[in-house]
């Protein structure tokens, strides 16, 4: 249910983006991501960007 592809955005045109995933370039739908910029990393599922990838919080350090 969670097969995803993390990739870098290299171009944006209206609701679509060109991504670079380990050297492979592909056009995907980016309509569901706000304020997307070239250079952002996104998570792609079934040809659609579902989330922008941000920084991680170390939850383990928080609870210890």
């Amino acid at each position: 249910m969670c097969v995803g592809l993390s990739a870098k955005v290299v171009d944006i045109k209206e609701d679509t983006a060109i991504i670079d995933a380990d050297g492979v370039k592909k056009e995907i739908n980016a309509a569901l991501i706000d304020e997307l910029e070239v250079g952002d990393y996104i998570m792609v599922h079934a040809g659609t960007a579902i989330a922008k990838i941000g920084s991680d919080i170390n939850v383990l350090d928080e609870i210890l």
């Binding site: 569901l32 989330a51 990838i53």
Partner: peptide
């Protein structure tokens, strides 16, 4: 998984 999952999720979706 805070790098991808936000509490509110993807509102547009």
């Amino acid at each position: 998984y805070t790098s991808v999952v936000k509490d509110e999720g993807n509102i547009a979706a």
